[in-house]
């Protein structure tokens, strides 16, 4: 971002009366939002959902609250999360993975198989509640700070940090326990 371009929080403040400010946020963050979507739904669905996120952001602009970090990404990720949930609720759950309306695990299964890490990841995530999984992956896979993840999830930064610490403890304990042959949430 060049120095003469308005920062995210200034653009967010302008949005209510100047909806075209979303255009600069799109140019700035569309790729990150696409990655967020692709991690949860696969690249093809992400292509289709990208516009939905920014269109929804435009219509929701009167309710925007900038994160203290100044970044618009936590707000955009929160909207993307809702778009993903609406998308995944139209699909059948993926066998062998936890019921989850924030992640299309079938879309990531092949990659995990190739890495030989699917069972380990399943074991670690199976020990967590859906809320704990969310905060763990927002930080580990999306690069958010715990406070930013809290903004996405609609909880305070302190609550997010606490939830993240608990998630990490429980997931690590699951990894440290004796491996089981079959992990199932069904």
């Amino acid at each position: 971002m060049s120095t003469d371009e308005p920062p995210d929080d200034e653009l967010l403040a302008r949005l209510r009366l100047h909806p075209d400010a979303i255009g600069l946020l799109f140019e700035r963050h569309a790729r990150a939002v696409h990655r967020f979507l692709a991690r949860r739904t696969g690249p093809q669905a992400a292509d289709d959902l990208l516009a939905e996120v920014f269109v929804a952001a435009t219509t929701a602009r009167e309710r925007v609250h900038a994160h203290p970090s100044g970044s618009a990404l936590p707000w955009l990720y929160g909207i993307a999360r809702n778009v993903v949930r609406a998308h995944l609720r139209r699909r059948a759950p993926t066998p062998g993975w936890p019921p989850d309306d924030h992640m299309d695990w079938a879309a990531v299964d092949d990659r995990l198989d190739a890495l030989g890490r699917r069972d380990e990841l399943r074991r670690a995530l199976a020990a967590l509640t859906p809320d704990e999984r969310d905060v763990l992956l927002l930080v580990a896979w999306d690069g958010l700070t715990p406070a930013e993840a809290g903004s996405v999830l609609g909880i305070s930064g302190d609550a997010a940090r606490s939830r993240l610490a608990r998630a990490r403890r429980r997931a690590q304990a699951a990894l440290d326990s004796a491996p089981r042959k079959d992990i199932s949430w069904t």
């Binding site: 696409h34 692709a38 991690r39 992400a46 292509d47 990659r111 890495l115 990841l121 896979w141």
Partner: peptide, 8 residues
């Protein structure tokens, strides 16, 4: 296991 995602 962090996904490597191609750019759109």
């Amino acid at each position: 296991t962090a996904p490597t995602i191609s750019a759109p």
